[in-house]
Amino acid sequence: MKKKSKLKFQIISIISLIAFFAIWQLLTDVYRVIPSTMLPSPVKVLQTIGMKWSVKKPDGSTLPQHILASLQVSGLGFCLGAVIGVPLGVIMAWWEKADLSLKPVFDFVRTIPPIAWIPIMIVLLGIGVVAKASIVFLSAFIPCVINSYTGIKATKTVHIWVAQTFGGSKTRTLFKVAIPTALPYIFTGLKVSLNSSWGALVAAEMLGSASGLGYMIQMGRLLSRADLIVVGMIVIGIIGTILSAFLDSLEKIVVKGEVR
């Protein structure tokens, strides 16, 4: 009985997806309700993906080149965010003086969206990979800090007492007790951070680029090529999904047993 109804819902889901693409195709290519300058048909999108796989025109790079450029920027920004953000969160949570002095600055900086930094980033760091990665970093490090902070704070006081009773120093207690406890939190932070690094990509590439997925969709707009825009959006979506699926499985391996 239960299996049967599950199957029924799966069928509905599949039909719904098919209907989504069918309606899209009908509205664009078949009945031409929506002009192709506003929304290309799914078929046209597939054609453009096939074409962009090896053709540089009209935006200067092939799709794999764009993907590579974007992964480089996001990857670097994410790594910076993790390497700086996680220790910062841990330090702030473990040492009260660090908390008191750094938290207000952090709370203020996090309210300024990365995109607002673009104009000064040009003057401070230029327009290279580092400048773009810094824009990504600004959005990636926030979840890292918050989650490791919360994770360390969530360590049970009793556990700390026990550690200290057995003669553990403050630093030793941190590494032996608090950080292991915080690990699941830190991982959630990294996951959120990876998502926001990928999301900040488009913003980073507004900084002045010669390739990248965000650049590609901007060029699509400048050239009034809706198909390029949609291809860019889809590729951004797919890679985002792959990245979070990857971290999900990594989490299962690293954080054994209880998650939160």
Binding site: V202, A203, I217, M233, I236
Partner: peptide, 17 residues
């Protein structure tokens, strides 16, 4: 299907629409 597309990636299409 649509969720993973970052809001900023919608900018060009939103302007066309």
């Amino acid at each position: 299907l649509l969720r993973p597309i970052a809001p900023l990636a919608w900018i060009p299409l939103a302007i066309l629409w």
